[in-house]
Simulated scan of single mutants.
Amino acid sequence: MKDQLETWHINNRINLYLLDVIEESALEDVSASKGRKVGDQFAHLHNVRLMWLKAAAPELLEGLLKIDKEVKINKEILQTELHKSAEAMAKLLEKSLAENKIKGFKPHPTAFLGYLISHESHHRGQIVLTLKQAGHPIDQKTQFGLWEWGSR
């Protein structure tokens, strides 16, 4: 269980590492296909976590803010809320791993962890592509850093 929880925390640190290098103004960048803004992508990660918490462990939602259209998205809000939702998700994972089940998801909690990380990795890729298309590419050090899970 310890390894799975650490893996989840590394994933979140990678998200925050990417967010940290993005200029505040670049949160407004939109992809060439007119998808979500960069800031909205990060908000989506957080909001999907809340969706799973609501379904599987609503008691863990206390103190968490849904980042919807009325919330002015900035790096501070994203960093704070991603950190808080990651902690709540870690509690959900810990409980689910101990019980070997997660409400609303099959087949098992380790697969759920894989699902969560796959989803968030997909959106990190979209964020990087959007920034590149908008003329704000992340530097090469950060690009490689997204894959250095052993140092995050």
Results as ranks from 00 to 15, higher is better:
G114K: 05
P58A: 04
A98C: 08
Q126F: 08
A32F: 12
I138Y: 06
L27K: 05
A32M: 13
H119K: 03
I102F: 09
S96G: 07
Q126L: 12
V71L: 11
N100I: 10
R36N: 06
M89W: 04
H9C: 01
K69Y: 09
S118A: 15
E87F: 06
F112T: 00
L61T: 09
L53Q: 02
M51K: 11
S151R: 15
E59M: 11
T7I: 07
E70Q: 09
Q4E: 13
D29I: 01
D29N: 10
S33T: 15
A86F: 02
K103Q: 13
L64D: 08
K37F: 03
Q140E: 14
H136S: 15
K66F: 04
P137S: 14
K69W: 09
R13M: 05
L129N: 03
T80S: 14
L131F: 01
G150V: 09
A134E: 13
E70N: 13
T110L: 04
F112P: 01
L27C: 05
V30Q: 14
L97E: 03
Y17F: 15
P58W: 02
P137H: 13
N11W: 04
V71G: 04
E70W: 00
A86W: 01
A134L: 08
L60F: 07
K69F: 07
S33H: 14
W8P: 00
K103D: 06
D40A: 12
A55S: 10
H119L: 01
G145S: 07
L65E: 05
L27N: 06
G114R: 07
V48R: 15
H9R: 14
E99S: 10
A26V: 02
T80C: 02
L116Y: 03
A55T: 11
K103R: 11
E23A: 14
D68L: 05
E94L: 00
E94D: 13
K106S: 12
W147H: 14
E120S: 09
N15M: 08
E99K: 11
S118H: 14
Y17N: 06
S25A: 13
H122S: 10
L27D: 02
R49S: 11
K2P: 00
T142L: 08
E28A: 14
G135D: 11
E6H: 04
H83K: 14
Q133V: 03
L146E: 01
K66E: 12
Y115Q: 05
E28V: 08
A43D: 01
L93F: 06
A32H: 15
I102L: 13
S96L: 07
L60A: 05
W149P: 00
R36V: 07
K37T: 14
N12C: 11
E87P: 02
F112H: 01
E99H: 06
N100P: 04
H83V: 09
I22L: 02
L53D: 00
S151N: 13
A98P: 07
F144S: 15
A26W: 03
K75T: 06
